[in-house]
Computed example of a mutant assay.
Amino acid sequence: MPLQLRQATEADAPACGRIATAAFVDTLSPTLFPPHLNPGPDDEVTWRTQRTARRIREGVPTLVVVETDPDSGKEIAVAGFAQWQKPYPPAGSEEEEKEEVLDAAAKAKKEAEKDPGPPSLDVTVFELAVQIMDEETEKAFGERGYKDMWYLMMLAVDPQFNRRGVGKMLLRWGVDQATADKKDVFLVATPAGRFLYLSAGFKDIWHRTLINVPHTGMLWELPGKEASA
């Protein structure tokens, strides 16, 4: 069946929540929703759905790849999705000066508070993971971290659609946007996605174990940037 890339709407959030949960069920899920907190069968799906919908409402660029019927062209299923964060306003601009200045711990707490989730979500673990990622990124790039880059916040593919190029389509969209903006691209990968990013030209920047899973900060640099600098 053909696959097509399109902008997501809030109506796609439940499918994205299911896909993200299925993609990380054997890696991140057991730590974010540990057995001792008695997670319900739909707790993680609900939390991820709410996060995805909230970001879409806030204007975060969100893309889905959908499978379509070759005869009617109607959509059959959502195969995967990605959410991208655009570069922040330039340093020293009026827009940048209006931003709230927070340290890594405060940023992590603020991020967790946006989507509080059910009691079965281990918020302490989630906040710590976000804090460490922010600290590692600032070590690599300086105080602004990835603010001057396109940042891949989330990419997840329904396991039923693995090895059909869904991840490549979602990743290519962001790289193309960054290229047009003359920007680099940053992301944090788990082992499941790292090969895709390496094959697209990303390079490892840092390695840390977060939420009991190895994570790698990875950078795609705009071709010819040094020559034009």
Rank of each mutant, 00 (worst) to 15 (best):
F126C: 06
P118E: 06
K107A: 06
W173D: 00
T190G: 08
G165I: 07
R194L: 06
A105S: 11
T124C: 10
R144P: 04
G193H: 09
L155Q: 09
R194S: 03
E143T: 12
E136Q: 13
L128F: 09
L187G: 00
K147T: 08
S120Y: 13
K147Y: 15
L102F: 10
G165V: 09
L170S: 02
D148M: 05
D176R: 11
T190H: 04
S93Q: 06
G201D: 14
I205Y: 01
A156P: 07
A108C: 07
G201F: 15
G117H: 10
R164H: 15
D134P: 02
G174Y: 13
F141T: 03
R164A: 04
K110R: 15
D115P: 04
G92A: 10
Y151E: 01
A140E: 03
T137Y: 03
E94F: 11
G167H: 10
D204A: 07
D103F: 13
K114V: 01
A112M: 13
P90N: 08
L155P: 05
G165A: 08
E94T: 08
K182N: 13
F195K: 14
P119E: 02
D184A: 11
G92V: 10
E99D: 13
A140T: 00
R194Q: 14
E100S: 10
A200I: 02
A156I: 05
E97Y: 07
D181I: 12
E99W: 14
D148T: 02
M169W: 14
A192H: 08
G117P: 11
G142H: 11
M133G: 01
G142A: 08
R164Y: 08
A129R: 02
E135N: 00
E143Y: 13
F195Q: 14
L121K: 09
D158L: 09
E127L: 05
M133F: 03
A105R: 11
A91P: 06
D115T: 14
A189R: 01
T190L: 09
V101Q: 13
S120P: 14
A104V: 04
G117M: 10
G165P: 12
M153D: 06
D103S: 07
I132N: 00
K139C: 05
G117S: 11
F202P: 02
Q160Y: 11
A129S: 07
A180Y: 05
D176C: 07
P116E: 04
E96N: 15
W206P: 03
A91Q: 12
S120V: 09
K114I: 01
V130Q: 03
S199R: 14
V101P: 01
Y146W: 15
F161H: 09
A112I: 07
P119H: 05
L187V: 05
V188L: 08
L171T: 02
Y146M: 07
L171G: 01
K182R: 15
K168D: 07
V123I: 13
M153Q: 06
L128V: 01
A91D: 03
A180M: 08
M169N: 05
A192T: 05
A112T: 04
K147I: 02
T137I: 05
G145C: 04
A108I: 06
L187N: 00
A192D: 05
L196D: 01
E136N: 07
G165M: 13
E113F: 10
E113I: 06
